[in-house]
Write a protein that binds this DNA or RNA. Structure first.
Lengths: 96, 96
DNA sequence: TAAACTAGTTTATATTATAAACTTAATTAC
DNA sequence: GTAATTAAGTTTATAATATAAACTAGTTTA
């Protein structure tokens, strides 16, 4: 039987966010917005979910004048992502 | 920007179903039930969605005594699946 | 100082996934 | 032979999700 897919990662936008964060040290809210094309509201919600799950850490600070929300993937998040990819490859590889 | 993931395939159960169907020439309702572990109701709904989208073809007949629902992936479904896998591979590295 | 902009959050809505309840027919038990 | 059980599905109800709209709070510009 095929393994379950972590529902937290099996969502297009959250997967996009994690994919971005896996590749860099950190990314701010605006960068995530630009590279996903999603709305602020949607991103805000999904970041919170990822943060609540401990998959990312969020650091809020103040730039020159406006607030800046910085995101970084956590160890837990990295592991969950690896596990997700492995599970997914069981689906994909069956039909090579 | 990362490509969209076909929402019809980006669902655990439907992806399981398609993964099964890609590997065989056809599979009946019970086989799908056993190999996914999902409930009849859920499978019924998802098969209908895949069928409505033209991703699979469903043939209903009568076995020895009980009705038999047979499913087969269509060309359209196969193409959609390939496209989905390709899109997904942009998110993750499947060659790990 | 009023209008417009930046960076977010909260709330409402529309869609989805899923299981529970229902239907229809066949088989078995009494 | 009919009552209970099982088989194979479908339909409906509910819970969870994704998403956008509306809102908040502060900043810059005209």
């Amino acid at each position: 039987m095929l393994p379950d897919l972590d529902p937290l990662l099996h969502s297009q936008l959250r997967l996009q966010i994690i994919t971005i964060l896996v590749g860099v040290q950190s990314a701010d809210f605006n960068h995530i917005m630009e590279s996903t094309g999603a709305t602020r509201g949607n991103i805000s919600v999904q970041l919170k979910k990822l943060s609540d799950a401990g998959y990312i850490t969020i650091t809020k600070s103040f730039g020159k004048s406006y607030p800046v929300t910085n995101c970084e993937i956590s160890n837990k998040g990295r592991l969950a992502f690896e596990k997700y990819v492995e599970a997914l490859s069981k689906y994909i590889n069956l039909n090579k």
